[in-house]
Design a protein around this nucleic acid. Structure first.
Lengths: 353, 353
DNA sequence: GGCGGAGCCGGAACCGGTTCCAGATTCCAC
DNA sequence: GTGGAATCTGGAACCGGTTCCGGCTCCGCC
């Protein structure tokens, strides 16, 4: 209803001065500013962001593209991003986009191409170079959180190191038959989060001198009574559950420890083990990664990370890229991997001899 | 970069005609339209939504306020909303807002007050009348999904009936000591989702003639060897877990069946039971509500609903309220509760005699 | 005392679309 | 053949802000 012209008239100044007074840009006498502010408050004036962005080209709005909203890690990241953005006075428009497909193309070519967002944060989605370049061309900063190859700022934990660390934890406990439940497609997409974790597992296995048995396929591994075994499944609780049922139901010497690619998978493993009458950790040690809030309840040993903090950090970088605030320093410690921490709980122990 | 004036010039028409040709409003000769479209495609023209909404007052954007993103029901709803909105060419800006507080006020008084959204969908959040009226005054349609009292269109399952149905399922199996794990604050907020489910439970218990024992507090109930018991906890897996540990660890005759206010709580109950050496369903029957995707894996009997469909439906109503599309009929069956379905799995059975 | 510059303010252009209005043409009906 | 409606198009106003430019005042300094 009320436009800035009304405010100006009421305050007895021009539109230009009213705009300057309210936005804080330019010189305005202190009592003039007060008059304008009073007038604005009196008629309940609220600036139209559309009009403002039309002329300034900035929308105070960032797009977030995210493949899942219902998996713990992603949900936490999203919440972290949302809070930080809100605090900075920004809106967040959500694009729930998974793998390639017409929906995804539409999002990138139509929705993100318009001038609605100032920047985009892509979490856990492998952008094609065309998609990344498209944003670049339009001058929209891009920040990535995990997943995919370079192009734009990139925030990530060192998933390969995490995979190695988790595996080493089991090896140090004395396990020699440790299996890895990888995320679906880990072998095919080595650069992905789960691909990296799988590689870290293989690193650790090889370093322990158990590597040769692993080289073969999972089936071959089982058949030869291998020290190590790889299986893939959805990175969810049911995914871990069914993969674990399969793994533990195999003939031959059973794995005594499992490194699951995510905590949610690990929960599924624990449940599957118990269903089969195995006791965790007596008969089977289990470690995951994420630091899921259910970890406590399941007594799960894990490599924890802080998705919420990661989301906030991504917003920090975005705002910095947009020249927001007084962030003098360019980028804090760009490239350095995000922190992780081994949290030992009840689900891992030395194997029975 | 490219503005509509450029398109018009290239096509040899006026801005007005170009606008009409591209937006489809008004009369344009068919070959003129083709020329304009070709020109637009040639220079990669993309309309500025800001300019358009400045003059039309519509933003093609709806706000979604939601208290959680990481609980299954809410995540599913959000995904459903997102897909439907995207398909209709709308953006979705997310406001992750929980209970009252400064953040919430800021969202309603600043973010939603601006002209950025055409409508808002509130899922599972109890709007104050001030908040609802504020939106009303600004002419923004409001659609609610679950939770809270009237004001604006309201979509919901019949939570009270669901609570009764779940309880009756247990009673019909022959259980006489059935406990209810309600959501935190259920007793204090009887209009809320979990408040209604609790009331449904009490209805069924009373109807079965087991009511008198329930009237007292939970503690009193336990002490008197009551037929029914009420406990509250967070509507999450750990929430159900700790509440169940407490419930099942009590002295006196143990409940033989538990109705958990949500599937996530029910999973926690199952795990707690097994941790205590109880077998489900032999020693304890468990029923939840939601239709969680993990239900299969846990073999959980539940009253299922379709949060994704509910999200899509909410979008439908919103678009209709915005006069979008050719939705001739006003509102389909407004007021009718959304569908639910009893899904019987392995977690419920008759009590041992 | 004069001059440069900073502070303050108003007029007007502008961002990029949409829509009203008016003029021109075509088409149909009487 | 003519009146009137329907179709098509262009000019111009407009949405609600921001910002450029220029004018004025006042201060400090040479």
């Amino acid at each position: 209803m009320a436009a800035i012209g009304d405010v100006a008239r009421l305050a007895g100044v021009s539109k230009a001065t009213a705009s300057r007074a309210l936005s804080g840009r330019g010189h305005v006498a202190v009592d003039t500013r007060r008059r304008v502010e009073a007038a604005a408050a009196e008629i309940g004036y609220i600036a139209s962001p559309d009009a403002a962005s039309l002329v300034t080209g900035r929308t105070k709005n960032v797009g977030v593209v995210i493949p899942f909203v219902n998996r713990w890690f992603f949900g936490e990241v999203l919440e972290g991003i949302e809070r930080a953005l809100l605090a900075a006075g920004y809106d967040l428009t959500l694009y729930n986009v998974g793998d390639t497909g017409p929906v995804r193309d539409r999002v990138f070519e139509f929705f993100l191409a318009r001038k609605r967002v100032d920047a985009v944060i892509a979490v856990g989605v492998d952008l094609t170079s065309r998609e990344a370049e498209g944003l670049e061309q339009r001058g929209k900063p891009l920040v990535r959180l995990g997943g995919g190859e370079p192009g734009g700022a990139r925030l990530s934990i060192d998933d390969r190191a995490v995979g190695a660390l988790a595996t080493e934890h089991l090896l140090h406990l004395g396990h020699t038959r440790v299996a890895h439940l990888a995320g679906a497609g880990a072998a095919a997409a080595p650069w992905s989060v789960h691909g990296q974790r799988r590689l870290g597992y293989l690193d650790a296995i090889a370093a322990a001198g158990l590597g040769d048995a692993v080289a073969g396929s999972a089936a071959a591994g089982a058949a030869s009574g291998a020290a190590a075994t790889l299986l893939e499944g959805e990175m969810t609780m049911p995914g871990g559950y069914t993969a674990a049922l399969q793994l533990l139901g195999r003939p031959g010497p059973r794995a005594t420890a499992v490194f699951a690619a995510s905590d949610e998978m690990a929960f599924g493993v624990i449940r599957a083990a118990e269903r089969l009458g195995l006791s965790v950790p007596r008969d089977l040690s289990v470690i995951g990664v994420d630091g899921h809030e259910y970890g406590e309840m399941f007594g799960l040993t894990t490599i924890s990370q802080s998705p919420g903090d990661q989301g906030r950090l991504a917003v920090d970088v975005v705002l910095r890229l947009l020249g927001e605030g007084e962030h003098a320093d360019p980028l804090p410690d760009s490239g350095a991997p995000l922190p992780t921490r081994l949290v030992v709980r009840a689900s891992t122990t030395a194997p029975e001899r």
